[in-house]
């Protein structure tokens, strides 16, 4: 049991780390495409790891099933949203950052 708790704590910490790094990336990256890359990590890796960590702490199977459904939903919708944003930006001609350009 103690092993499970340690494993879950590690997963939760890793998830939090990914979310924080996503937030930092959102603020620090130079252009739109690199920024949605950062938010994509928050969605999939960050939230996914936290959900897995919570899954190891569930006591009833109903809560576990709910978490799994949420996980599945996030796995399907998160990348779709990121893909759409990138697609729309590309179509509208948002320029890609190159080395030496100013941040926008």
């Amino acid at each position: 049991m103690i092993l499970l708790e340690i494993l879950s704590a590690v997963l939760l910490a890793a998830g939090t780390l990914f979310i924080v790094s996503g937030a930092v990336g959102l603020l620090r990256f130079p252009d739109f495409y690199t920024r949605i890359h950062a938010t994509g990590i928050t969605d999939s890796a960050g939230a996914g790891l936290i959900l897995l960590g919570l899954l190891l702490r569930t006591t009833t199977w109903e809560a576990g099933v709910r978490l799994l459904i949420i996980l599945l939903f996030l796995v399907v919708t998160g990348p779709t949203a990121t893909h759409l944003l990138a697609h729309a930006a590309r179509r509208d001609g948002v320029p890609v950052w190159r080395k030496g350009h100013p941040r926008r």
Partner: peptide, 12 residues
């Protein structure tokens, strides 16, 4: 024209 969106939303 957004094929991914159409597939995912009809799935959801």
């Amino acid at each position: 024209e957004y094929k991914v969106l159409r597939v995912v939303s009809s799935l959801l």
